[in-house]
């Protein structure tokens, strides 16, 4: 498999074309708006928490972007929805490590935790693309942080974009 084909695997293309979690829903407990400064791609992501316990009960998002960013947010939705927030934070750490592994990957045990999102491992060979894969994760982290402090206000979206 060429290095190009390794980042554009069937699974990734499929997720980009038929993404999970796309389409914002009400109500939500925390919302984040993130922009990739390189290309201007945007994502708006909402989380809902379970009543009375720190568990994710719904991730929805809207936005546009490249194959990598769209597939990554779709894969993360599949991976983290329904998990305790503590576990979500751990997975975010693991995914971050993977993205900064410069193509070397992680220990098998860590990689296995990422489920299908491990298909994005090849992106770590391309430092210019890591940001694309992390955009959704950044939005997720901020949305959860807002939800945890009870800030369910809409995210700020700059005028005129």
């Amino acid at each position: 498999m060429s290095s190009l084909d390794s980042i554009y695997q069937e699974l990734i293309i499929d997720h980009a074309k038929h993404p999970q979690g796309r389409g914002l829903v009400e109500p939500f407990d925390g919302e984040s708006f993130q922009v990739n400064p390189v290309c201007g791609d945007q994502i708006r992501l909402r989380v809902r928490l379970a009543d009375g316990e720190p568990v994710l009960r719904g991730v929805t998002w809207d936005g546009q972007g490249c194959t990598i960013s769209q597939a990554s947010v779709s894969l993360l939705t599949e991976l983290v929805d329904g998990l305790p927030l503590e576990r979500v934070a751990e997975l975010e750490q693991v995914f971050n490590q993977l993205m900064h592994s410069r193509g070397h990957g992680l220990d098998q045990a860590l990689e296995d935790q990422l489920g299908d999102a491990i298909a994005l491992a090849g992106v770590s060979l391309y430092p210019m693309r890591v940001k694309c894969a992390l955009l959704g994760w950044m939005a997720l982290r901020e949305a959860i942080a807002k939800a945890l402090v009870g800030d369910s206000s809409p995210a700020h979206i700059p005028e005129g974009i």
Binding site: S3, L4, C39, C66, T67, I68, S69, R129, C132
Partner: peptide, 12 residues
């Protein structure tokens, strides 16, 4: 095709 994807193809 998103420009990032196009750029990746051209880079290859």
């Amino acid at each position: 095709v998103h420009p990032h994807d196009a750029g990746q193809f051209l880079d290859a």
